[in-house]
């Protein structure tokens, strides 16, 4: 006897596939933003579910800060090759060289510099829709963002003037020069992502699992020591068994002490965690509305 009930993961999956197919049907030149992180790994699986046995109706785009965990870049290239899909990479380095992006003196993280780099890439390829892996549970400003999030000709988000979004009917209409950011994972939580990775047996970069790494205590977190981040005098430097919970610019991505070496252990750890995922991201801590401010400018 078959019961006609979907589990929460199946319901979320069906919703995300629907969103991906709407983008393919409604836009001329969509693109999928792929960083190699856990959310965009789920996005690729959902795209396979939406479009196989056909090819993806969009290329993949990575905005490379140059401040990466090397494991992530290797994983990114391998995954794109396995899928046989086209990967475009645009770097903050080039954007700085061309004057598209300008570094702020004293700011070591390049997260903010991704914004002009991304906007320039969207313009270069005339992309009219960019699929992103952002989730509403990540941050308060994201909690209010639409699945189809309209951006004006300057790439800006206007939180007070968003289009109402009803049922599963998405208004995809834009004028030339404008674009849409689309977030198929809007309704997923961090735990859903990990349960999906487990269910689908998805490969993820090794830095999500426990490994020994030299880290330095700064701003209440353990930051990885790298050529981009050298300990200052008197700072507490240790080699610990750590893993990352979310991946950003290597100079500001906090590591957590963890012994989790498989996905099931990570799920147990997250379920018991007392700090949110982005609690390890120094860039979000600056003010109560720092994400809103960055998003207004055109951040992911």
């Amino acid at each position: 006897m078959e019961t006609y009930i979907l589990s929460h993961l199946e319901a979320l999956e069906a919703e995300s596939i629907h969103i991906l197919r709407e983008v393919a049907a409604e836009f001329q030149r969509p693109v999928l933003l792929f960083s190699g992180g856990k959310d965009s790994i789920c996005m690729l699986r959902l795209a396979e579910k939406a479009f196989r046995p056909a090819r993806f109706p969009f290329p993949l785009l990575h905005i490379d800060t140059g401040h990466n965990f090397p494991e992530l870049i290797a994983f990114r290239d391998r995954r794109a090759a396995e899928l046989g899909e086209k990967l475009i990479v645009r770097t903050v380095e080039e954007a700085l060289a061309q004057g598209i992006a300008r570094a702020t003196p004293g700011e070591s993280s390049r997260n903010r510099l991704q914004t002009p780099t991304l906007l320039a890439a969207l313009e270069e390829f005339k992309f009219d829709a960019a699929l992103g892996g952002a989730r509403r549970d990540e941050e308060k400003a994201r909690a209010k963002e639409r699945v189809f999030s309209f951006r004006d000709a300057f790439g800006q988000w206007d939180p007070k003037n968003q289009r109402p979004e009803l049922w599963n009917l998405f208004n995809a209409r834009i004028n030339p020069g404008e674009h849409m950011r689309v977030f198929p994972l809007s309704n997923w939580t961090e735990l859903d992502i990990w349960q999906y990775i487990l269910r689908e047996r998805l490969e993820i970069p090794s830095i999500y699992f426990t490994h020994r790494r030299e880290v330095v205590r700064r701003d209440g977190q353990w930051l990885p020591v790298s050529p981009l981040l050298q300990p200052r005098p008197k700072e507490d430097v240790r080699t610990l068994a750590v893993r990352v919970r979310t991946i950003g610019d290597i100079s500001c991505t906090g590591c957590i002490e963890s012994a989790a070496n498989n996905v099931a252990d990570i799920i147990t750890e997250i379920a018991a965690a007392r700090v949110t995922e982005r609690g390890g991201r120094a860039d979000d801590k600056r003010s109560e509305t720092s994400m809103e401010d960055r998003k207004r400018e055109g951040y992911f």
């Binding site: 929460h8 308060k140 909690a143 209010k144 007070k160 809007s186 309704n187 809103e292």
Partner: peptide, 30 residues
């Protein structure tokens, strides 16, 4: 915790729909 936009915090009101997520062992809620 739920009023995330600057204008909402300053005015102490909810302007837009905010989506929130929680789960119990029995159900997941949006």
């Amino acid at each position: 915790l739920t009023d995330g936009l600057r204008a909402e915090r300053e005015q102490g009101i909810t302007i837009d729909v905010a989506y929130r997520y929680f789960a119990t062992p029995h159900r997941k809620f949006i």
